[in-house]
């Protein structure tokens, strides 16, 4: 596997972790907010812990994804003669990158924490799934050549 592939695989794992911790956060936060007694049942990390893990996973995933994008455009330049060819995978990768970038910006500059920003990280993970699953199968792409 190329460095490009490894970076994307690593970032996908991090985004999966962010998505899962995000989902757990949303469920548990919803229960605490609604005063549902189930909030106190079973084992669960505290909201702050889930929020922190979600944040760390997004940061790690974003860094790896960015390296993967740089490497990908370099390889595209070598293979297809241009770093950006408008391939659906490239387009959706940029959309995903922007979504996670937004999560980072909101957290870092607006100081956003909790439900909204965690929800955004879960939605962003759906974009990852769409990029690596949906677009690869549904759209015309040259990426399956790799």
């Amino acid at each position: 596997m190329t460095g490009h592939g490894l970076f994307f695989l690593g970032s996908a794992a991090c985004f999966l972790a962010a998505g899962l911790t995000g989902l757990l956060f949303l469920v548990q936060e919803g229960r605490i907010k609604r005063k549902d007694p189930r909030a106190l049942r079973g084992l669960s990390l505290p909201l702050e812990g889930l929020d922190r893990l979600n944040w760390l996973a997004v940061v790690a995933g974003f860094v790896l994804f960015s390296f993967g994008m740089i490497q990908g455009h370099r390889l595209a330049g070598l293979a297809w003669g241009a770093p950006f060819s408008g391939d659906p995978i490239e387009v959706w990768s940029w959309i995903t990158w922007a979504a996670y970038g937004l999560v980072l910006i909101l957290r870092l500059t607006a100081g956003l924490k909790g439900r909204r920003v965690v929800f955004l990280s879960v939605v962003s993970f759906l974009l990852v799934l769409l990029t690596i699953g949906g677009v690869n199968h549904l759209a015309q792409t040259r990426h399956h050549l790799f």
């Binding site: 548990q28 007694p37 909030a39 106190l40 049942r41 669960s44 505290p46 909201l47 702050e48 922190r52």
Partner: peptide, 20 residues
Amino acid sequence: GRGAVSVSSVAVELAGRIFR
């Protein structure tokens, strides 16, 4: 023995579910 059954222990358990 599961689940807090007094007002103060429910409050403490909730704090444990919110804060790291």
